[in-house]
Computed example of a mutant assay.
Amino acid sequence: MNDWSLPRQFAGESPYSTAAQSTQSKTLRPRLEDADTVGTSICPFCAVGCSQLVYAKKGRPIHVEGDPRSPINQGTLCPKGAGTLGLLTSPLRLNYVQYRAPHSTKWERKPLDWAMERIAQITKRTRDETFTHTLPDGSAVNHTLGIASIGGATMDNEENYLIKKFFGGGLGMVGIENQARI
């Protein structure tokens, strides 16, 4: 017997039916039925801030789509945003800190707390060693040329403002730049 809806309709089923059904389509289930959690997120690829819905099963993401409640993207995602699931689930993604000591030829796995403390200590040491209070003519500058910051395209205006205030005003960095070109 042919399983297409048109032959079935000619065989006596309602000719007004617009539902094409087959044996296979009757067994299909909604693709997100297995999700046990739905969370919200922000797309990581640019500073627009598109909202996303992240569907997960047993703590692992299985699907990402635009959040229709968002006034920014209204449920849509650009091609980069639509690729967020690949970013989250790639077998090449590192989910831990890798450290290579000076002059070493190998990488070591380190705890995140260790890495954050090391970054803070090196930043403080470098700032203290390179900080200039005044120029030779006596002009106050209170800055360091020993460290700098470069931001990424995912930072929005508010984040850049805070970075400028903290790094420039707090640490005295002069070299603060943002790579906002995508």
Results as ranks from 00 to 15, higher is better:
P44Y: 02
P44E: 01
P44D: 02
P44H: 08
F45K: 02
F45V: 06
F45D: 07
F45Q: 12
C46G: 11
C46F: 00
C46Y: 00
A47L: 05
A47R: 10
A47M: 13
V48H: 08
V48Y: 00
V48F: 01
V48W: 00
V48C: 07
V48N: 05
G49P: 14
G49F: 14
G49A: 13
G49C: 15
G49N: 14
G49I: 15
G49E: 02
C50F: 01
C50S: 09
C50N: 05
C50H: 02
C50P: 03
C50L: 13
S51M: 12
S51H: 15
S51T: 15
S51P: 09
S51F: 14
Q52P: 04
Q52F: 06
Q52E: 07
Q52S: 03
Q52V: 11
Q52N: 06
Q52A: 05
L53K: 01
L53Y: 03
L53F: 05
V54C: 09
V54F: 08
V54Q: 09
V54T: 12
V54K: 03
Y55S: 04
Y55M: 04
Y55C: 10
Y55L: 06
Y55D: 09
Y55P: 06
A56S: 13
A56N: 04
A56F: 12
K57S: 10
K57W: 15
K57T: 13
K57H: 12
K57D: 14
K57Q: 15
K58D: 14
K58F: 14
K58S: 12
G59K: 11
G59V: 08
G59F: 09
G59P: 04
G59L: 06
G59N: 03
R60N: 12
R60C: 09
R60T: 11
R60H: 12
R60K: 09
P61E: 07
P61D: 07
P61L: 04
P61A: 07
P61I: 03
I62V: 09
I62E: 00
I62F: 00
I62W: 00
H63K: 12
H63S: 01
H63E: 03
H63G: 02
V64G: 00
V64D: 01
V64N: 00
V64W: 02
V64P: 00
V64M: 05
V64I: 15
V64H: 02
V64A: 00
E65R: 13
E65S: 08
E65Y: 10
E65H: 06
E65C: 10
G66D: 13
G66Q: 04
G66A: 07
G66N: 09
G66T: 03
D67R: 15
D67K: 14
D67G: 09
D67A: 11
D67L: 11
P68A: 10
P68T: 09
P68E: 10
P68Q: 11
R69A: 11
R69E: 05
R69W: 08
R69L: 08
R69D: 08
S70V: 02
S70F: 01
S70K: 03
S70C: 01
S70W: 01
S70I: 01
S70N: 02
S70A: 04
P71V: 15
P71H: 10
P71Q: 11
I72Q: 04
I72Y: 04
I72D: 05
I72F: 03
I72E: 11
I72L: 10
N73M: 06
N73V: 12
N73D: 05
N73Y: 04
N73E: 03
N73H: 05
N73G: 02
N73R: 11
N73W: 04
Q74D: 07
Q74P: 05
Q74S: 11
Q74L: 07
